[in-house]
Design a binder for these strands. Structure first.
Lengths: 194, 194
DNA sequence: CCTACCGATCGGTAGG
DNA sequence: CCTACCGATCGGTAGG
């Protein structure tokens, strides 16, 4: 239904701007020239909207990770994951922002659902890092920490990425792929404490 | 005054857990076995508390950056900035979390004050990266993007750092210093698109 | 999709 | 630091 997506889209935009709790049902309705009570013909509750928005973002991240060919070598796979991840953030800026920022305001069950999906997504990164370590192109003894480092670096982009900005998505992706692949290339190796 | 800091500390903990808007003055008071109205003998308003908490975090980041000797070479300076930054996050976990998460709920003037301080802090990183590029130990043609990449990666740690966790602050710092210095070491250089 | 409305709760003040 | 209280606003429902 068009209207339903319109409402979720308006909610996503406002959740992104003001946060979930500072956004009111009346505010969402007003941005669509409706009354607050009319929203309830399309959505069950404010929290149901949050869950749906966060789920849409999780779906997008999952779809991009699944689209990366497993037959590629570790570097190419990681590069594709990085580009895909940044592309999802850029394309779904409101939903992705809400996904990162407000997932913790979900009720217990919904929150567990989302954290499970996030963990499954992180596993794609851990796997490709482990693959690269095994094939000798990456150097790290802790794929989990490396994944947190990488995903944190990528996720930060939702705070400052600007579609109208000086740097295009592709330019940013070029830089980030470079930094991440270098980070794991571990030129000197002996640097790390043991 | 002890009581005043107690209130700000309790507020910081609750802001961190539930976010600024979902935290109530009565909730803060309750965690101190007081009534909501009693808080106003010590603080002016809820937003004044947010500003003070965010300012305390900004002060801590600034102090650590200033404590790094400018006479060091670029790698040593960047390493010190990374370790100091992670140490502040670990030591001021509630305040730092609120700093990252809820600064945008400040009023216009207060928000500008904080973004200015954040920009000044980022300048420390841009400067040391530029220094390293000039002295030939770092390879990047965009110190600003590199800074955003690095600070995003470091800042993400507030989401998962656990003082009781398997990895100590020092172990995490070792990994992160390694990743960041490698990222900028740019082993192959030709990787980057032009 | 609207008007009318509800109970709950919010940040904050008065006055001691 | 408390009791008592205020106007405003919230998410949501009734009933059309």
């Amino acid at each position: 239904m068009a209207k339903r997506q319109d409402i979720l889209s308006a909610a996503g935009t406002l959740f992104r701007e003001h946060g979930y709790h500072a956004t009111t049902m009346r505010g969402i309705a007003k941005s669509l020239e409706m009354r607050g009570s009319s929203l309830y013909a399309h959505v069950d509750s404010k929290e149901a909207m949050l869950f749906e928005i966060v789920t849409q973002a999780a779906d997008a991240f999952k779809a991009q990770a699944e689209s990366v060919a497993p037959s590629l070598d570790a570097k190419a796979r990681l590069e594709a994951l990085i580009r895909g991840h940044l592309a999802v953030i850029a394309r779904e800026l409101p939903n992705a922002t809400v996904f990162f920022h407000d997932w913790r305001f979900l009720s217990t069950e919904a929150r567990r659902n989302i954290t499970e999906r996030r963990d499954a997504y992180e596993q794609y990164f851990r796997d490709v890092i482990a693959q690269g370590v095994e094939s000798g192109v990456f150097y790290t003894d802790n794929a989990k920490v490396a994944t947190l480092f990488i995903l944190s670096a990528l996720n930060g982009s939702y705070e400052w990425f600007d579609p109208q900005g000086a740097l295009s998505l592709e330019e940013i992706s070029d830089y980030y792929v470079d930094y991440v692949l270098n980070a794991l290339a571990g030129g000197r190796g002996e640097k790390h404490a043991n």
